[in-house]
Simulated scan of single mutants.
Amino acid sequence: MMARPLTEGLLATERLTVHHIHAPHRDRTAPRVLFLGGSNFDLTLKRAFLNSDLANKFTFATYEPRGIGRTEHPDGSWDMRDYAKDALAVMDALEWDTTAIVGESFGGMTALHLAGLAPDRFTALVVASATAGGPVHRSFDISSFLSLSRRDAAIEALCLQDTRNIAQQTQDPEGFAQKLAARVQFEEDFAQPSIASGGYARLLNARRGHDCTDDLPYIDTPTCVLAGRFDQQARPEAQQALADALPQGQFHLFDAGHGVLFAAPKATETAAAFIRTQWVNRAAKRKALM
């Protein structure tokens, strides 16, 4: 777990109240990281990031997005710009003028909208397991899983997010059964409250409208795109296309599935090194202008 004290609880912003985690680093000059999790980012269930360099080597914050867990569910329809504006509101509530953004899956989609909304506030972007959207490069529409039983949804998710699991079903049924049992338990735990409340369906509806294709040439923030070779939810070739379209994009492919950021240690190391380099570069540029 995290090697230093953290604050966890509700954070009131000008837009909504979010359930968040905030862990200041003892070194006040350390880079700041705002982590945007995936579509099912319930902090009761998702804790693996607390063991990572991203959480332990930087000043770190994250929160449950609207529609998920204990964060508020504002009235009205939501779109991806709402999620981007929510992230800015969290930064303001934390009194962060700038930060590196790390977005995984749905959080990576949000990060791209965020970069177009307020580019001067970000030192770096790390986009993992996410695409630019649109008709050519959209990620798989996982809202179709809502009509399935939680067990069937778990099977579909496992095989979509890591194609190695397809072969494991027949070649190593015992190993797959263990994965499936863990995923079914997650699905059942996540259903209350996020599916039962309708919040998850509203989030996925916003996700379907994600399309940053035309904006990519104008996102000038240094961006590191991390992809898993066996991911079919956010296909590697679509993630490569995202990196290629960004003026300062770079692409890294790892032997992993969806969720590559914390599944492949080298991916986490790559993200952390990229964030630190961009933070130092920005500080040097500011000093040169003084």
Rank of each mutant, 00 (worst) to 15 (best):
P31Y: 06
D172M: 08
L242F: 07
T110A: 14
A87H: 04
F176G: 01
A271C: 02
R282S: 13
A12V: 12
G107E: 03
W78K: 03
G103S: 11
Q239M: 15
L148Y: 10
T71D: 03
L204W: 12
L226S: 03
A273S: 10
T170Y: 12
V184S: 06
T13V: 05
D27S: 08
F186C: 12
E188C: 06
A30M: 04
V90I: 15
Y200W: 09
A201W: 01
R70T: 08
G116V: 00
M91W: 05
P265Q: 10
G103M: 07
Y218G: 13
A84I: 08
A124P: 07
H252F: 15
R229Q: 14
A177I: 04
F176N: 00
E156S: 04
V136M: 11
L242A: 02
Y83R: 13
A227K: 08
A263E: 14
A93C: 03
D120F: 02
A84N: 08
A238M: 14
L242Q: 01
T29N: 14
Y200K: 02
P65S: 07
L158W: 01
Q169V: 09
T99N: 05
L242Y: 04
W96H: 06
P265M: 10
A256C: 12
K179T: 11
S129A: 11
G103Y: 09
G198R: 05
L43M: 14
T17E: 05
E64F: 05
L117H: 12
A267E: 08
M290W: 10
G249L: 13
K57N: 14
V225H: 01
L160H: 02
G199A: 08
F274I: 07
D75S: 14
T270C: 15
D215G: 03
G67P: 07
F60D: 00
M91N: 08
A245L: 04
A245P: 00
V136P: 06
G9P: 07
G37R: 00
L88T: 09
A181Y: 04
T270I: 13
M80C: 10
V184Q: 01
F106Y: 04
V127T: 09
A111G: 06
L261F: 09
T110C: 11
R4K: 15
D82S: 13
L6Y: 05
F262Q: 05
G259S: 05
H137K: 09
E156T: 03
H252N: 11
I166T: 01
M80F: 09
F41S: 02
N56W: 01
N281V: 05
E269C: 11
A124R: 01
P31C: 03
S77G: 12
Q169C: 09
Y83F: 15
K287S: 14
K266D: 15
S52Y: 07
I142G: 07
F230R: 08
F251K: 02
L180Y: 00
P193A: 03
D53A: 15
T170V: 05
I219F: 09
L289K: 10
A154K: 03
A100Y: 07
G108I: 11
F186M: 10
S194V: 02
